[in-house]
Design a protein around this nucleic acid. Structure first.
Ligand SMILES: NC(=O)c1ccc[n+]([C@@H]2O[C@H](COP(=O)([O-])OP(=O)(O)OC[C@H]3O[C@@H](n4cnc5c(N)ncnc54)[C@H](O)[C@@H]3O)[C@@H](O)[C@H]2O)c1
Ligand SMILES: NC(=O)c1ccc[n+]([C@@H]2O[C@H](COP(=O)([O-])OP(=O)(O)OC[C@H]3O[C@@H](n4cnc5c(N)ncnc54)[C@H](O)[C@@H]3O)[C@@H](O)[C@H]2O)c1
Lengths: 213, 213
DNA sequence: CTGTAATCGATATATTTTTATCGATATAAA
DNA sequence: TTTATATCGATAAAAATATATCGATTACAG
């Protein structure tokens, strides 16, 4: 129902927007008022035409010879990637990786706020990881339904991933950010975004092998 | 000088290979001897033609109606992405994320072995994170040159990333797996592979906004 | 005031990646 | 043995993405 919810943004563009935002935020901090696509491209080592095309998806409009007004551009980018809104999220699996994510301030800065974490390990119940309480997994459904949580971050071991997912979906979760290397089966209405670190490692190793010959 | 080092693999293909490997490893464990591109595609929910094209980059060759011999395919994939060889690596910045990576057994299983970690925090010197000793950052260069380390994983705060990178490059590091949201400046001979979690978050939020309208 | 250069925005081209088509082949059933 | 079918491997088409071109516009220098 909002102005821009039916637009379709290319995934590669979406993936680049956060780095543009980082660059122009730094310039804003320095007191700069305008930024050109060339400026951003140079800073990131990519093509300026690509940047300009990406920025065309925002509401921001640039002036020749000057560039885009930074405040306008920041707003435009944040609006597309949803970083101007706040969401409550829970994390399931407060182990090594889960704890790292809980402690990362970058998420709440971008509107993703962890309001609770859940784990199957009794010894963690009631403890806090970076100001987020670890609750028993038994309380998962109750918490989600009572607080109307829509987003879950999943950092449980692979063997537990699908089982936890089923419970999340059943309780009404609408989106799962999945860090386990498992293809989760969910109904079509539920969004699953999977991060697979091993893809990155694979690309890294191939590039190393090429570069080192 | 080896057989396959001058071949060029598409990055999207490389990124998919680890998930193929995971699927066929599971089948191998179940005692299966052959696997078809269709099997893998169904398991991952992607197109079988894409899988077959990807697999064509491996040395493995399939038989109509039967598929590929799993042992052959595993070897072929591992060979491309370098998971049949062992490398020693160091990690710099043993904080939240760094500690999670140090404790993740998936890396050594794929041939990436952390032999030491370095940090600027005195209190961590001499402690161990998952059997990996945290050493003073002052010893960085000495360790790299003496042990001929070529790979570094970078998990320091953003403000320290470039400075640490310069030291790594100076000491002879050939590849940096970078988890900080910073574009690292390195000589052309050094490979930098950057993981930007925020890209994933952005895509996730956009998809949520689309799906939830 | 005029010319120059940077940059936008739109359009066009090139490249990469995905998806489709099709003949060949191996297996299993008839 | 013959026939039906799943699958491979190669080639072709389509879609997505990246890069190039170009006129219009604006700031700035002369
Ligand atoms: N650690 C890393 O660097 C890393 C990197 C990439 C991917 N991953 C993936 O992230 C996931 C977690 O990795 P980790 O290293 O944090 O593992 P971990 O064992 O440290 O943490 C898993 C946590 O989940 C909890 N848990 C187990 N079963 C549960 C259940 N049914 N319900 C709720 N909680 C449960 C455990 O008690 C534990 O605290 C794994 O799937 C792993 O493959 C981890
Ligand atoms: N924690 C996450 O979930 C997460 C997610 C995405 C990206 N990142 C990025 O990963 C990096 C690390 O994040 P973190 O959460 O682990 O931070 P952290 O503060 O927990 O860890 C950073 C570590 O680096 C050490 N350090 C600082 N300066 C150093 C130097 N000059 N030399 C050596 N060591 C130094 C610190 O002592 C600390 O132990 C950051 O760039 C962050 O943006 C983290």
């Amino acid at each position: 129902m909002t102005d821009s919810s039916d637009k379709k943004y290319p995934v590669p563009t979406i993936r680049r927007l956060p780095s543009y935002l980082r660059v122009i935020k730094a310039l804003d901090f320095e007191g700069r008022e305008f930024v050109s696509a060339t400026d951003i491209a140079n800073e990131l080592g990519i093509d300026s035409i690509k940047v300009r095309k990406d920025l065309a998806y925002t509401e921001a409009t640039g002036k020749p010879r000057v560039g885009y007004r930074i405040t306008e551009l920041m707003h435009g980018i944040r609006s597309i990637i949803g970083w101007d809104r706040n969401s409550e999220a829970i994390l399931v699996g407060a182990g090594c990786l889960g704890s790292a994510l809980l402690g990362f301030p970058g998420f709440s800065k971008r509107g993703l706020n962890f309001v609770a974490a859940f784990d199957a390990d009794r010894e963690k119940y009631g403890t806090y990881v970076h100001e987020c309480e670890i609750k028993p997994i038994e309380e998962l459904e109750k918490f989600i339904t009572e607080r109307l949580i829509e987003i879950a971050v999943l950092t449980v071991p692979s063997f537990a991933a699908q089982q936890v997912t089923d419970r999340l979906v059943n309780a009404g979760i609408k989106g799962i950010w999945n860090f386990s290397p498992v293809r989760l089966k969910v109904p079509p209405s539920v969004v699953v975004q999977s991060e697979n670190l091993m893809s990155g490692l694979a690309v890294f190793m191939v590039r190393m092998a090429r570069g080192a010959e």
